[in-house]
């Protein structure tokens, strides 16, 4: 009887170990981004033992230098509308790589591209910006991440400059846990992600630049469509210091365009 219990216990522990080993991605950091592609997952066999290989061999990687790309403004593009409403139960999350706000499970805010709808899953910040203009970065960059029912990812990016204090960003800073992996799901605070958009743009009809790209963090998966707003938002210098106290230099360097152009509505 005891042997049977011990055997079941050992099997359970082994199963848990294998599940965790398989499901966890290998550790990575922005400091070693030039060798993300070479990070090995020792639990996998060739070629899956290089789970971040696309970071090195991908040809449509993000971010990019926007001034290096040719801008095509003669094409008729889809209407872009950020239909974000207030999230009554956002989760403030320290991802271990940056500060992030996950929308609640029943959140209904979406990004409309033409007639297609892409639910907002989370938004997060990089310091400094990931996309640069003529080699010059902005102090920070906001990424709204959307995923539709097909698993397609759309990221709406907004450059962040120093200027007037941003009250919504202040709320996020005040509620982000400082420990890696920490989640604050019961703050009772409501957030409307639309309030972080540039004030002089119409959320229901946004001008934009768009380019095909990838996730900017491992596994650097391609097939991500980027929408970049032509206007910036501001945070105060003190808020930037507060952001840097939590995460700094969590931006990927610009990647080769490899013939990609920017499509523009303006």
């Amino acid at each position: 009887m005891n042997t049977k219990i011990l055997r079941n216990l050992a099997f359970t522990i082994f199963t848990c170990y294998v599940t965790i080993a398989v499901s966890e991605t290998p550790h990575w950091s922005h400091d070693e981004q030039s060798t993300w592609w070479a990070i090995q997952d020792t639990t996998q066999n060739v070629p899956l033992n290089y789970p971040f290989g696309e970071c090195g061999i991908g040809k449509h990687q993000s971010p990019v230098d926007l001034a290096s790309a040719t801008i095509i403004d003669s094409k008729s593009l889809n209407k872009l509308a950020a239909l974000y409403d207030t999230d009554t139960a956002p989760v403030f999350f320290n991802s271990g790589h940056g500060i992030q706000v996950n929308t609640s499970e029943d959140y209904s805010g979406v990004l409309m591209i033409g007639e297609e709808s892409f639910p907002l899953i989370q938004f997060h910040f990089h310091e400094p910006s990931e996309h640069v203009v003529g080699g010059k970065s902005f102090p920070a960059e906001l990424h709204y991440v959307h995923i539709n029912e097909d698993g397609r990812i759309i990221v709406l990016a907004v450059a962040v400059d120093i200027g007037e204090e941003n009250p919504v960003f202040g709320t996020i800073l005040d509620n982000i846990p400082h420990e890696e992996g920490g989640q604050n799901a019961s703050s009772g605070i409501q957030i409307n992600p639309a309030e972080l958009l540039p004030a002089d743009l119409d959320p229901a009809n946004l001008d934009y630049y768009t380019v095909a790209g990838s996730l900017t963090t491992p596994p650097c998966s391609e097939g991500v469509q980027w929408y970049l707003l032509p206007k910036v938002i501001t945070i105060s210098a003190a808020q930037l210091v507060q952001l840097k106290d939590i995460y700094t230099n969590n931006a990927r360097a610009p990647q080769n365009l490899n013939g990609r152009s920017l499509l523009s509505t303006q």
């Binding site: 095509i72 029912e149 698993g151 397609r152 990812i153 759309i154 095909a212 990609r260």
Partner: peptide, 16 residues
């Protein structure tokens, strides 16, 4: 190279 070309994914990608 200059058009919008997101990845084709299947339904199984959604939850993961």
């Amino acid at each position: 190279t200059d058009s919008q070309s997101p990845q084709n994914s299947n339904q199984e990608n959604k939850p993961s």
